[in-house]
Computed example of a mutant assay.
Amino acid sequence: MKKVILLVALIFATSCQTNTKAQNEKAIAHQIPEKEVFSNEQLQDFETAYFASGCFWCVEAIFESVKGVKEVVSGYSGGKEANPTYEDVGYGRTTHAEAVEVYYDPQQISFLALVQVFFGSHDPTSLNRQGPDRGPQYRSIAFYKNENEKKVIEQYLELLESSNVYDRPIVTEVTKFDTFWKAEEYHQDFERKNPNNSYVRAVSIPRLNRFKENFREYLKEEAH
């Protein structure tokens, strides 16, 4: 029982919004895994998809592990304010949510598969909260860029609901995509570069491992 209490205390003592830039830059990784790098010009050859499901450090790492995904960018979307900052979004001073921009090859993975990854890697019944992170900036959003993507999301939602996958109603927002604002550079690839960060160890890595356990068929070879 004592171990359980200590674990809960550790998780709730850390959160995506409590890490300052200075703290983040002090987090040192003993070995940063290699990652294929694409230029902005090369990225234009791929499709994009946008999702929000809690702290973007966690969400970025999850989609980075999926085959067919070429790049994932952490940022902000779903709100009205221009040029949002981490401090403003993280402390709920905007209408944005922490979100990710996913570049993917549709010849290797479909938009439907990405939607499945999205729903399968977080709790879509949790309103304005994921894990220890609370507030509308951590709400669940599936963005669509066109009517076909909207149809894919809505049909999958209907399937989840009709199959009674969850005990509670799904609260995910299905929202027309408008603008994505890239987060500050120190947030990019945060989990990969900072495996010893307290939040990463207590929240991000366990969340990633749960996803890997349930979606083995979607993983890149190096992610197994």
Rank of each mutant, 00 (worst) to 15 (best):
L6C: 03
L7S: 09
V8H: 06
S15F: 11
S15C: 12
T18C: 09
N19T: 15
T20F: 11
K21L: 08
A22R: 13
A22S: 13
N24H: 12
E25W: 08
I32H: 06
P33R: 04
E41H: 12
Q44T: 15
D45H: 14
F46K: 01
F46A: 00
T48M: 12
A52R: 07
G54V: 06
G54Q: 04
F56S: 06
F56V: 01
E60N: 02
A61Q: 14
F63T: 02
F63H: 08
S65A: 15
V66T: 08
K67F: 06
K67H: 12
G68R: 00
K70P: 01
V72R: 08
V72Y: 10
V73F: 08
V73I: 15
Y76E: 07
S77I: 13
G78M: 05
G78C: 07
G79N: 05
K80Y: 10
K80E: 13
E81T: 01
E81N: 00
A82E: 15
R93V: 12
H96E: 14
V100F: 04
V102P: 00
D105V: 01
P106W: 04
P106V: 00
V117M: 07
S126F: 13
S126C: 10
S126I: 10
L127N: 03
N128R: 05
R129G: 07
Q130E: 07
Q130G: 09
R134D: 12
P136L: 06
Q137G: 04
S140Y: 04
A142Y: 13
Y144E: 03
E149I: 01
E149V: 00
Y156M: 07
Y156G: 03
L157D: 09
E158C: 09
L160N: 01
S162P: 10
S162Y: 11
N164E: 15
N164T: 04
V165W: 11
D167G: 15
I170F: 11
I170E: 05
E173S: 04
E173L: 11
V174L: 08
K176Q: 14
F180G: 03
A183L: 01
E184M: 00
Y186T: 01
F190L: 03
E191W: 07
K193D: 14
N194H: 15
N197S: 10
A202I: 12
I205A: 02
R210Y: 03
N214H: 12
N214T: 13
L219C: 10
L219R: 05
L219F: 11
E221Q: 13
E221K: 07
E222G: 00
A223N: 03
H224R: 00
